[in-house]
């Protein structure tokens, strides 16, 4: 049935989505594109025109390096979220139906607090005279104090913490619909957990994994506030650099060009992945 051509009703139902995308996604993206082709005035705002100068600047090794570094941080964050979050999502989704959603809500409770306040708490844990170093000093005084805060490791910790729910939630939704009987059957046929997981569970939860990875990786590329607070803003990442063009450097057109490049990279990779993937390969 998936694959039917939409009838009149379907088009009607599709209208809100199409309108929303056209008005608030495509139109702003086009505004950005126009902006990126312009020149800046003394306030950094746009003098409309047509110049590719801002795109030429993107090829500067400094900015290429920033692009690559940001992708690296996002990839590491995604991998860690997957390793840490998948077992949790699996465990929650296989819990007794009565407590399943409650456990899920319990995972979400910490995120009711403000991001900034949470990050300050992490700073209190990681700083030189902080909790973690107190523990280290007690266990192994020779090592203390460890310089934990304002390092790439602190940035990754903060990113993983912030994005973990965005991996757990979709994976949970996809494990939850696994047919228990299928796993039981595999066990009854003598397959141990190490066989059942790659043969049965992993393929069936692949759509959930793909969704979770997308929801973590994609926003993490342009993340900025965590990196500033926990990393001490020592290493420029894409999110900060774009933000800076608007809020410090007074160079809107270049900021827009960085953004357009990021969006274009994303669209091309999405369409490319889709073209590579045989139709229906991800269907369970």
């Amino acid at each position: 049935m998936p694959g039917a051509r939409p009838g009149a009703l379907a088009w009607l139902l599709l209208t809100p989505l199409l309108a929303w995308l056209a008005l608030f996604v495509v139109l702003p993206a086009l505004l950005l594109l126009g902006c990126s082709l312009g020149e800046r005035d003394e306030f950094g705002q746009v003098l409309w025109g047509f110049s590719l100068e801002n795109y030429a600047r993107l090829l500067d090794p400094v900015y290429l390096g920033i692009f690559l570094r940001s992708l690296g941080f996002a990839a590491l964050t995604t991998a860690l979220c997957l390793l840490i979050g998948y077992p949790v999502a699996y465990h929650l989704a296989r819990a007794a139906p009565r407590v399943r959603e409650l456990l899920l809500l319990l995972v979400m409770v910490p995120f009711w607090t403000s991001f900034l306040v949470r990050t300050y708490a992490w700073m209190a844990i990681l700083r030189e005279e902080g909790l973690l170093n107190a523990l280290v000093a007690w266990l192994q005084p020779a090592w203390a104090p460890l310089g934990l805060l304002y390092t790439p490791a602190a940035v990754v910790t903060g990113l993983v913490y912030s994005y973990l729910p965005f991996l757990i939630l979709p994976v949970y939704a996809s494990v939850e619909k696994l047919d228990g009987a299928l796993i039981e059957a595999a066990h009854d046929l003598g397959a141990g957990p190490w066989r059942v997981f790659p043969a049965v569970i992993l393929p069936l939860t692949l759509p959930g994994i793909a969704a979770g990875v997308t929801l973590v990786f994609v926003p993490a590329v342009a993340m900025f506030a965590v990196t500033d607070l926990l990393g001490g803003a020592r290493v420029p990442l894409l999110g900060n650099v774009i933000q800076n063009q608007f809020l410090q450097a007074r160079d809107w057109p270049f900021g827009a060009a960085l953004g357009v490049a990021l969006l274009a990279l994303f669209l091309v990779s999405q369409l490319g992945l889709r073209a590579l993937r045989p139709r229906g390969a991800l269907r369970g």
């Binding site: 800046r40 003394e42 950094g44 400094v62 390096g65 920033i66 020592r234 290493v235 420029p236 650099v241 800076n244 063009q245 410090q248 450097a249 007074r250 160079d251 270049f254």
Partner: peptide
């Protein structure tokens, strides 16, 4: 300093990246 703000930002971004 008008447009020089962008040159300054670029210099600092460059130096921070080189660390």
């Amino acid at each position: 300093i008008g447009r020089a703000a962008a040159d300054i930002d670029r210099l600092v971004t460059d130096l921070k990246s080189a660390k």
